[in-house]
């Protein structure tokens, strides 16, 4: 019996390893980008093959942004990291895997596509949610992942804070606003996709705070007759950055390909793919073309309001930071 099975298994394994590309890249990314990178990788592989007649295979890994950064630090051999926020790549850079000036090596803060935080509500918007104020009303259940583990959740939190600080004019009032908001959150999932599934599949909550692209995807998957997207008048400009992992790419000899991969994001084709997947493109022409797909939202940046990611992380999400104080009460 075993004698009969063994060759079969060996044959199967051999068959899978028979195909070998000239280069193999590993892109370690965060949760909601699965569809985006499936699309982008296909286009890049074709473009690169056409230009250099070299074949590339691109492998993907997805998970919560923070835990993906942790895996790269622990030795996951990523040539490229494309995470939810700059702080997570900073953490990798702190271990010497990525050059400290990584965010200056590519234009636009090394964020070739952006997004923002919007509300996904159930059909007909039964709780009449239009703006951030509406989220703290009694009886409104808000779904958001845990800012401690999820990049998307940190953007959600900071967007709410930015709104409140602008409206009420003080950090103290903003803190109270965000505290009130989290009192309306019945469950904190660990990642953005987990929260989407909680809201969409399990039917929990009245409003999901989500990446704009994630909200569009949920709407595409489940139909416009079930969910509506509400864009608040003011939100945060989320800049998910990309970076080359110097140490790994140099060891594997993939630096040139990996650089080409990241630069492809800044081409018209790359920008078009971002727009098609409901990420906001940076290129003004493509942005104009897709103008109608995205709601007009006034966007503030993390540098404007919070003085950059390092400070925001320390003040709000660090051990004993503002989120800890809020959530304990």
């Amino acid at each position: 019996m075993i004698r009969r099975i063994l060759p079969l298994v060996a044959g199967l394994l051999w068959a899978s390893s028979a195909f070998a590309a000239d280069y193999t890249l590993l892109n370690v990314s965060y949760d909601p980008t699965r569809e985006l990178y499936a699309d982008f990788n296909k286009a890049f592989v074709a473009a690169y093959q056409k230009e250099t007649s070299k074949s590339i295979e691109i492998k993907q890994s997805h998970g919560g942004s923070g835990s993906q950064a942790r895996a790269v630090i622990d030795g996951l051999q990523a040539d490229i990291v494309t995470l939810a926020l700059a702080y997570d790549i900073d953490a990798i850079a702190a271990k010497g895997l990525v050059a400290p000036d990584w965010q200056k090596r590519l234009s636009l803060n090394a964020s070739p596509y952006t997004s923002t935080i919007v509300f996904l509500v159930r059909k007909g918007n039964p709780k009449a949610i239009k703006d951030w104020d509406d989220l703290i009303k009694p009886g409104v259940q808000v779904i958001t992942p845990n800012p401690k583990t999820s990049g998307g959740a940190r953007w959600n939190y900071l967007a709410a804070w930015g709104f409140a600080e602008k409206k009420f004019g003080s950090a103290d009032r903003a803190k109270k606003f965000v505290a009130d908001l989290f009192k309306n959150v019945p469950v904190l999932d660990t990642g953005a996709r987990g929260s989407t599934v909680t809201f969409v599949e399990r039917g929990v909550g009245d409003v999901l705070l989500a990446w704009e692209n994630e909200a569009f995807l949920a709407q595409r998957e489940f139909g416009k007759d079930k969910f509506e997207i509400v864009a608040p008048p003011l939100s945060i400009l989320a800049e998910p950055p990309v970076a080359l992992v110097d140490k790994v790419a140099d060891k594997k000899g993939t630096r040139a390909v990996a650089e080409a991969y990241l630069k492809y994001w800044y081409t018209k084709e790359g920008q078009e793919i971002a727009a098609r997947n409901s990420y906001r493109p940076r290129d003004s022409e493509i942005a104009k073309e897709y103008e109608k797909s995205f709601a007009k939202v006034e966007l503030f940046t993390i540098d404007d309001v919070f003085g950059g990611w390092t400070k925001a992380q320390k003040d709000h999400f660090g051990e004993g930071g503002i989120f800890d104080q809020i959530y304990k009460n």
């Binding site: 949760d31 699965r34 993907q60 997805h62 599934v197």
Partner: peptide, 22 residues
């Protein structure tokens, strides 16, 4: 695992991944 698609995902891991991808 590192969750590398097509490389280090076992069946139980893939079940979760596919579920999360609708």
């Amino acid at each position: 695992s590192g969750h590398i698609r097509g490389e280090t995902n076992t069946m139980p891991l893939l079940v979760e991944i596919l579920y999360n991808e609708y």
